[in-house]
């Protein structure tokens, strides 16, 4: 698996997409810092970009990489290598290279602008960590979609739809249903619904750092326990890991039964 991972990773790192992706974050980071000259403020703006963009790029690249490397995958399948190793290797290679692009692209401008002297460094690092976690989750989702649909158009369509649903539509329905049922106790529902969406989970992970003062403003034992102790952080991290593990397990299951 490590060998496949290495080949996928270096293959991708040499491709132009990882440069374009890194360059995008580099320019974005630079622009944010240049316009504000304030690391804390730039981190807050980045939050929005990262929790919506890394999933999009992750799911699209996941689907695209699977379709584009089909022939190569077949070449590998005829070699004495375990199937699981091929797909996990490719998956990890892609996720790592995207995460690296993210870290390098954003890291350089922030370091140049004095990240290490800023109190926002931990916020920034948890932002990068969350971005990487989202990348791993959404590349896995993309791989699942591509494994299930031979048709590229349908695969890409479903990938975009998945992203749109989890970034916007889910939260919209979530918000509207809370407003409709506002006369009922909602704290468990509010936390529960957030747990089922990896984007909400990672947003909450960052809110715990940036907006803890506001989160503690709500009266409710469940909220207080969740946000006031380490429970929130532990829960969110645990569930996000599940969001990586479950799709990866399906990759293993699905790829083991697929004909090429």
């Amino acid at each position: 698996m490590i060998r496949i991972l290495k080949y996928s990773f270096f293959d991708l790192m040499r491709g132009r997409w990882s440069y374009i992706y890194a360059a995008f974050y580099f320019i974005l980071g630079y622009a944010l810092l240049f316009l504000n000259n304030d690391v804390s403020k730039a981190v807050i703006t980045l939050l929005n970009v990262i929790i919506s963009l890394t999933p999009l790029i992750g799911v699209i690249f996941g689907v695209m990489y699977y379709y584009n490397s089909r022939d190569f995958t077949e070449l590998l399948l005829a070699q004495p290598i375990k199937r699981t190793d091929i797909f996990l290797g490719q998956y990890l290679g892609l996720s790592l290279s995207l995460s690296l692009s993210l870290a390098a692209g954003l890291g350089i401008p922030f370091i140049v602008y004095g990240l290490f002297q800023s109190p926002a460094i931990f916020d920034f690092l948890s932002l990068l960590f969350t971005g990487a976690l989202l990348t791993f989750i959404f590349v896995a989702l993309g791989y699942n979609i591509a494994l299930s649909f031979e048709d590229k158009i349908r695969g890409f369509g479903l990938a975009i739809l998945t992203w749109l649903f989890l970034t916007i539509i889910y939260d919209g329905l979530f918000l509207i249903s809370m407003m409709i049922f506002r006369d009922y106790p909602l704290d468990k529902f509010a936390l529960g619904a957030a747990m089922f969406n990896p984007i909400d989970l990672s947003r909450i992970l960052i809110l715990l750092k940036l907006d803890i003062s506001a989160l503690l403003g709500y009266t409710g034992a469940v909220f207080e326990k969740f946000f006031g102790t380490n429970l929130g952080m532990t829960c969110a991290l645990g569930l996000l890991s599940l969001w990586v593990i479950l799709p990866v397990m399906r990759i293993i299951y699905k790829s083991g039964r697929k004909d090429f």
Binding site: R3, Y7, D71, L75, I81
Partner: peptide
């Protein structure tokens, strides 16, 4: 599959690899 060499119908390879790298890679895998 160590005992079998297979030549597929149409050969398409990872585009960013060089020919020599492909050879080395397959040697490495087998």
């Amino acid at each position: 599959r160590n005992e079998i060499s297979y030549m597929p119908q149409i050969a398409r390879f990872p585009p960013n690899l060089k020919v020599i790298e492909l050879f080395n890679m397959i040697k490495n895998l087998r």
